[in-house]
Computed example of a mutant assay.
Amino acid sequence: MNRTTTLLKLLGTKLPLIQAPMAGVQSSRLTLAACHAGALGSLPAAMLPPEKLCAEIETIRRHTDQPFNINFFAHKQPEYQPQQQAEWLAVLAPFYRAFGLTEHDIKSGGGRQPFSNEQAEIVMAYKPPVVSFHFGLPDQPLLDKVKSSGAVVMSTATTVAEACLLADKGADIVIAQGLEAGGHRGTFMDEAQAHQAGLFSLLPQVCEAVALPVVAAGGISNEATARAARALGAAGIQIGTALLSADEADTSERHRAALQSPRAADTVLTNVFSGGLARGIRNRFIREAGPVNPAAPPFPLAQSASAPLRAAAEAQGTDEFSPLWAGQNAVLAQAGSAADIIMRLAAAFAG
C-alpha cells in the first residue's frame, strides 16, 4: 500500500488534499466547502471559546457526512513578564502616539489558547474524525484522550527532528511545513531560522525519516507546485494561501486586495504581530517594528499590544498594521470557489 492510499484510508476522503485551518479568515463555511469538494475540511479551534467550537462542529455535522478536521494549538503558554511587556510597549510607543492609543486600549484574555482538558472533553464528546495540532502535540494525558475518541491525529513538522518526534509520540500523519508557508510556523523544537528549510528540501528528508504518510504544506498554490510535491514523496498536500481568495473564505477585502496585487510577491517572516514567527505580506508595521524584533514577547503574548494598532489602522482604512498572512507563492493563487481551487490542485494526484 503506497502512502497516498494509506492517507486516503486514514482520512476517509476522496482526495489527498487538506484545507489548512486558518484562524481569523475562515469559519465552518470554508470547512464545509472543502468537504463537499472531496477534500478534508478543517476548522481552526485555537481562538474559539468552547461554546462557539461546539456550535461550529454541530453546523458541520448538520451539513455534511464527510470527514473533517478540528485543529488546535499545542504551544506552551508563556508566563507574562511585566518588564518584557514594558520593553515591547516602548517599541510600539511611536505608533501608539500616532493613533492616539494608550495602554488602556490593551485588552487582556482571548487570543490563541493551547489545547486544554476542556477542549479534550469536547473532542471526546463530538468525536471528530481527524484532529490536528500546530506547535507539536499536547501532553500525553491530553493526547491519550484524543486518541481514545478514535480520531486520526496529525501535526506539523518544520524539521526532520520534529517529524521523528511526532511519529514517536503517536501522530498518524505528519504535515511537513516548508519555509514558504504562510501564517505561523509550526516549530516546536528549534526556532532558529537558519535550521528551517524550504519544502522541497524538507519534504524528501521527512519522507525518508518516517514511515507515516507525509503531507506537504508551503508554497503549493497551483497544479505545478502540487505535482512537484507529489514527485518528492508527498502522500498528499495541505493548502492555505491558495484558499485565502476562495469565495467561501472570510478573508477581509483589504487582505484579498493585497493577495491579488504585486504586494503578494513580497512576504517575510515576522514576529511583531503575535510573538511567533509567521509569514505575511510586508507592510509598514513589519518594516518599522521588525521583521523580527527581539523585544516582542513570546507567542502569543505580543498580540495583546499589537491588536489595538491593527484596529485603529483598519478604522482609518489601511492594512499597514494588519497581519496579511500569505505564503511565498501567493502570486500563483487564483480566486474562485473552493471546489474549483481544490480540484485544480488535486489534479496533480490523479492517475
Score class of each variant (00 low, 15 high):
193 Q>Y: 12
163 A>R: 03
153 V>K: 00
42 S>E: 06
311 A>D: 09
12 G>K: 04
178 G>V: 08
94 P>R: 08
170 G>M: 01
273 F>W: 07
341 I>E: 03
130 V>M: 10
319 D>C: 08
74 A>D: 02
252 S>M: 00
52 K>L: 14
207 C>Q: 02
242 A>P: 03
167 A>F: 00
240 G>Q: 03
93 A>M: 06
109 G>H: 11
285 F>V: 08
246 A>W: 08
189 M>E: 13
322 S>Y: 06
157 A>R: 00
258 A>M: 12
1 M>A: 14
89 L>Y: 05
274 S>Q: 00
121 E>W: 03
111 G>F: 09
148 S>W: 03
193 Q>C: 10
19 Q>E: 07
10 L>M: 14
221 S>Y: 00
106 I>R: 03
21 P>F: 02
221 S>I: 00
85 Q>R: 14
150 G>D: 04
3 R>L: 06
290 G>K: 02
153 V>R: 00
58 E>Y: 06
307 A>M: 11
106 I>H: 07
168 D>A: 14
339 A>M: 11
312 A>K: 08
39 A>M: 11
323 P>L: 11
183 G>M: 00
244 L>Q: 06
98 A>I: 05
283 N>Q: 02
330 A>E: 02
310 R>P: 05
311 A>F: 08
87 E>R: 15
238 Q>Y: 04
225 T>P: 07
129 P>L: 01
330 A>F: 00
329 N>D: 11
113 Q>K: 15
23 A>S: 14
2 N>S: 12
129 P>T: 03
114 P>F: 10
120 A>P: 09
76 K>R: 14
72 F>R: 06
17 L>T: 09
167 A>W: 00
269 L>P: 08
249 A>K: 01
231 A>I: 07
244 L>T: 06
43 L>S: 05
309 L>M: 11
130 V>H: 02
346 A>I: 07
98 A>P: 04
239 I>M: 09
44 P>Q: 12
12 G>D: 10
298 P>V: 09
15 L>K: 05
122 I>G: 05
64 T>E: 04
19 Q>D: 05
236 G>N: 04
74 A>K: 01
227 R>I: 05
228 A>K: 07
73 F>D: 08
287 R>H: 11
97 R>Y: 08
162 E>P: 14
304 S>E: 13
243 L>P: 05
256 R>N: 12
136 G>R: 01
274 S>H: 06
52 K>M: 13
108 S>F: 12
142 L>A: 06
177 Q>N: 09
314 E>N: 14
77 Q>T: 13
208 E>Y: 08
86 A>V: 04
256 R>W: 05
197 A>R: 13
330 A>M: 10
229 A>S: 13
348 A>P: 01
206 V>T: 10
